[in-house]
Amino acid sequence: MTEDDLPAVMAIERATFPLDAWSEGMMRGELADMPRTRHYVVALVDGEIVGYAGLAAAADQADVQTIAVLEKHRGTGIGSAMLTALLAEAGRRGAREIFLEVRADNPRAQAVYRHFGFEEIGVRRRYYDDGTDAIMMRRKLDG
């Protein structure tokens, strides 16, 4: 992902996370830390950005910062492909485990993460701006 991708990325961000979307400034801050501690990717279909995902990595830990796919492209494997790319990057950076938070009211995303070997390790009460809990998940990486 580059700053040139931000208009499309921010449109997806606002559509996917209407109640707690990141600001463009927050996203620019994430990009400013690439490649030092961040790794962001976009997914293209016919030249159009239809999804994006980001990773934070430091020492032997990594965190999935975000994954979003336009609604009409969900269920097509795009999110899984981006998660696979993030897991591979975390491994390249020497991470031994990777963490994420997922909305408690998003069973579809939770199922994807479980399919990728993530396990629930706790709950962050009222984590999201609308008061929804976050399920904390972790996956150990081979290494």
Rank of each mutant, 00 (worst) to 15 (best):
Y113S: 05
Q61V: 10
E71W: 00
E119A: 15
V123S: 06
E119C: 14
A95W: 02
I78M: 03
I98G: 10
G54W: 01
A56R: 10
M137L: 08
Y40H: 08
R74K: 06
G47V: 00
A104M: 08
V42M: 00
L19G: 15
M34S: 10
F118H: 04
A59P: 06
T84H: 02
T16Y: 01
A59F: 10
R108P: 06
M136S: 15
D130G: 13
G25W: 02
G143S: 14
A62R: 05
Y40W: 07
S23G: 02
R93T: 02
F99N: 12
R126W: 05
A68Y: 01
D133E: 03
E101G: 02
G29C: 04
I49T: 04
M1Y: 12
G79T: 05
A68Q: 00
R126G: 15
E13A: 12
D142R: 14
P7A: 13
F116M: 09
V123I: 09
V102L: 07
D60S: 09
Q65H: 03
M10S: 00
G122T: 00
A134G: 07
M26R: 06
V102T: 12
G143V: 13
A134P: 03
H73Y: 11
R108N: 14
G91C: 13
T132C: 15
Y127L: 13
E48G: 02
D105M: 10
A56D: 08
A11K: 13
G77E: 01
I98H: 06
G122A: 01
G91M: 14
I121F: 01
E119T: 11
Y128I: 15
D63Q: 07
T132I: 14
R36K: 10
E101I: 02
T37N: 15
A88G: 07
G117F: 01
V50A: 08
A88L: 08
G47A: 00
M34R: 04
M10W: 01
R125K: 13
A21E: 12
E119P: 09
Q65V: 08
D130Q: 12
M82T: 00
